[in-house]
Nucleic acid binder design. Structure first.
Length: 355
DNA sequence: AAGCCTCGCAACCGCGCAGAT
DNA sequence: AATCTGCGCGGTTGCGAGGCT
């Protein structure tokens, strides 16, 4: 495959963009749309390659970009999605409206990764670094971990599809004259179409439950919870203690997390049931925020929050459920069960809607 | 004050995929 | 079927700012 030269061979400018260049690019896209990125630089009078222009636009100039500090919920979402998807920043960005994949990637690498490592969590595997899965539970844990991995693959594929749809819908709606008016993930009919498609996809996903999956579920569609088999993912007592100790050592931001998460758990019960998920612009599945809160509790302090709010999963019909159903023994300081809860809570709340 | 180090972020690079020819 | 083209993604780099010695 012949790869056409980009910036290197034809003496185009590289490096930081000047305000003048930004202005040119912005003006051109506002007037004409970006069309072909390759052709854009010459049309816009820029000595840059198309790729550089695209990057500058998508990561910096796009009017629907939110810049600045990440909110606590955004941080939580990133951590959880990363646990599911790994370094698939574009897929993660799909669910953090107005944040770019590049920004999320940078934030992960410079902040979140270190923070998790500091707390004794492997930022790659999201497991406690020194033997979270130990003792006689080993085999069962490995099985359950495999199941989780399998579910993550499903989820990954689903997100991919959703991301693609999101991009397509963006392309459809992006007109030269309405650049500023187009949010990244407009809550319009396109979005609902997408959701319908996703519901259909999810329905299929249930039907096609892979033979390799060892996960089993009990209950109806509305209250799908993993059986006890999955709970073996839980941290050992000693690790849980370690977790809490670690979190005790952390100050500042981490305590802020703890504080907010408590508020979330208490406050979201009502709001989320109403179908609105605050702070998450793209409610990709119900219950996400409450699980996020629970997970943050796990990350930061397994005990202090539970006395009042405990852990909340949520059934897909919007009703909060006590996580003891999920964890079996009510143990909330279980990082993976939170993620499992996320996966489970996104099971379809309504019959598949075919387009 | 100067030099060094660390951190955060914008931008670059190379690769893979998908559609077009 | 083979090749070309355009685009997007994820990893990496380079640079400026701020902190430390």
């Amino acid at each position: 495959m012949g790869r056409s030269p980009c910036c290197d061979k034809i003496g185009l400018k590289k490096g930081p963009w000047t305000p003048e260049e930004d202005e040119k690019l912005l003006a051109h896209i506002e007037e004409h749309g970006h069309g072909s990125w390759r052709a854009l630089p010459s049309k816009a009078g820029l000595q840059r390659c198309g790729k550089s222009c695209r990057l500058r636009w998508t990561n910096y100039l796009r009017p629907d970009i939110k810049r600045g500090k990440f909110s606590l919920q955004e941080e939580q979402t990133i951590i959880q999605l990363h646990a599911l998807l790994g370094n698939r920043w574009s897929a993660i960005a799909t669910h953090l409206s107005r944040r770019t994949d590049n920004e999320i990637k940078n934030y992960w690498n410079t902040h979140l990764k270190k923070r998790l490592a500091k707390m004794g969590i492997d930022p790659v595997t999201h497991k406690a670094t020194n033997g979270a899965l130990i003792g006689t539970e080993d085999v069962k844990s490995a099985k359950a971990a495999a199941s989780l991995s399998h579910m993550a693959q499903w989820e990954s594929a689903r997100l991919e599809a959703e991301g693609r749809l999101a991009r397509e819908s963006k392309m459809r709606t992006a007109t030269p004259t309405s650049v500023h008016a187009q949010p990244t993930n407009p809550p319009d009919s396109t979005a609902s179409q997408r959701l319908g498609m996703l519901h259909a996809w999810q329905g299929a996903k249930l039907d096609l439950e892979s033979p390799t999956s060892t996960l089993t579920f009990i209950g109806s569609n509305s209250t799908m919870v993993p059986t006890k088999e999955t709970t073996s993912l839980g941290m050992s007592e000693s690790n849980s203690t370690m977790w809490n100790q670690r979190s005790d050592e952390l100050e500042g931001e981490e305590n802020e997390w703890k504080f907010i998460s408590k508020q979330q758990v208490q406050g979201l019960e009502g709001k989320e049931r109403g179908g609105e998920i605050i702070g998450c612009a793209e409610p990709w599945f119900p219950g996400m925020v409450s699980v996020a809160a629970g997970l943050t509790d796990m990350l930061l302090d397994g005990s202090s929050v539970h006395d009042t709010s405990e852990c909340w999963g949520e059934s897909s019909n919007g009703q909060a459920e006590h996580s003891s159903q999920v964890s079996g023994d009510g143990e909330c300081s279980n990082y993976w069960s939170g993620i499992l809860g996320m996966v489970n809570s996104e099971l379809p709340s309504q019959p598949p809607t075919l387009l």
